[in-house]
């Protein structure tokens, strides 16, 4: 998919193989405690779903969607949890870990002395983040299905959509990391991420926000992701779904382009 979007940047054969070798390194680095962190990453969105969806849902009751359909609160919150889990999974790998590898471990200085190029590093790291994120998304969709928060066919459609969401945030996160000066800048990223998490129509329909705020929210990536996944999982997807998909695809392309250009500039001085 990415190769289709960016044919010009992948200017010669072997790029796929070299990107894969970058992802392969991450598999080799999987050890002991990191495994548990990795696997347990799945529980986080599940805990949120149970706490907010079921616990707070007990206080909220049912919710009426803009389409007029009435759903239980957990079914409303679950796709938003899926979207924000895809976001934070992708961001943790492509911001914090990526920055650490680039600036502190100086890993890419070593890699760039080989035939591997900056764009291939970006692509390889992103692919790895997506493998990890996709496993989480799949597991979460299974839970949604088991709790009767969506149907089987809808879950199957939602899976590639969740992967796309991960790709979009991964690419954006990587581009963002190339502008980071130090760890303290990640406080800002964390705060921004938290704000997106709270206001992207995650816990209440965006329609309930004041109209100015609503317009701001509608252009943020998490809102588009939530809109897409909720539309699919509740079976209410309208024309805005195509807009969401186009938006996320554009985010992948732009993010990857900026990331590889900036990396070349930072590392090949």
């Amino acid at each position: 998919m990415v190769a289709l979007v960016l044919p010009r940047l992948v200017s010669f054969e072997g790029a796929g193989r070299r990107s894969a070798s970058v992802a392969e390194r991450n598999v080799a680095a999987l050890k002991s405690a990191y495994w548990i962190v990795l696997i347990s990453g799945f529980f986080e969105p599940l805990l949120y779903l149970l706490s907010i969806g079921v616990g707070v849902g007990g206080l909220v009751g049912d919710l009426t969607l803009p389409s007029g359909q009435v759903v239980e609160y957990a079914a409303f919150v679950a796709p938003a949890m899926l979207a924000s889990a895809a976001m934070s999974g992708a961001l943790s790998e492509t911001t914090f870990n990526f920055f650490g590898k680039m600036k502190f471990m100086k890993l890419y200085d070593g890699v760039l002395a080989t035939p591997v190029q900056p764009f291939e590093i970006a692509l390889g790291e992103l692919a790895w983040a997506m493998v990890r994120g996709s496993l989480y998304s799949a597991a979460f969709l299974v839970v949604m299905f088991a709790l009767d928060l969506t149907t089987g066919p809808r879950a199957l459609v939602a899976f590639p959509a969740a992967v796309l969401v991960g790709f979009a945030f991964g690419a954006l996160g990587m581009a963002l990391s190339t502008f980071m000066r130090g760890w303290q800048d990640f406080d800002l990223v964390g705060s921004a991420q938290f704000a997106l998490f709270l206001f992207s129509g995650t816990f209440v329909p965006a329609e309930s926000y004041p109209s100015v705020l609503r317009w701001v929210i509608e252009v943020t990536p998490l809102y588009r992701a939530v809109d897409l996944l909720r539309g699919i999982s509740t079976g209410t997807l309208g024309a805005s779904g195509w807009l969401d998909v186009a938006y996320l695809l554009a985010a992948v392309a732009i993010g990857l382009m900026i990331a590889s250009r900036r990396m070349a500039k930072l590392l090949c001085k």
């Binding site: 070299r18 970058v22 080799a28 680095a29 050890k31 070593g110 591997v116």
Partner: peptide
Amino acid sequence: DNLDPELTVQENLTTYARYFG
């Protein structure tokens, strides 16, 4: 030295070899 601190001595060589295909 920009060796990979998350890998073993041997893995540092094998993963690096993979970058060369």
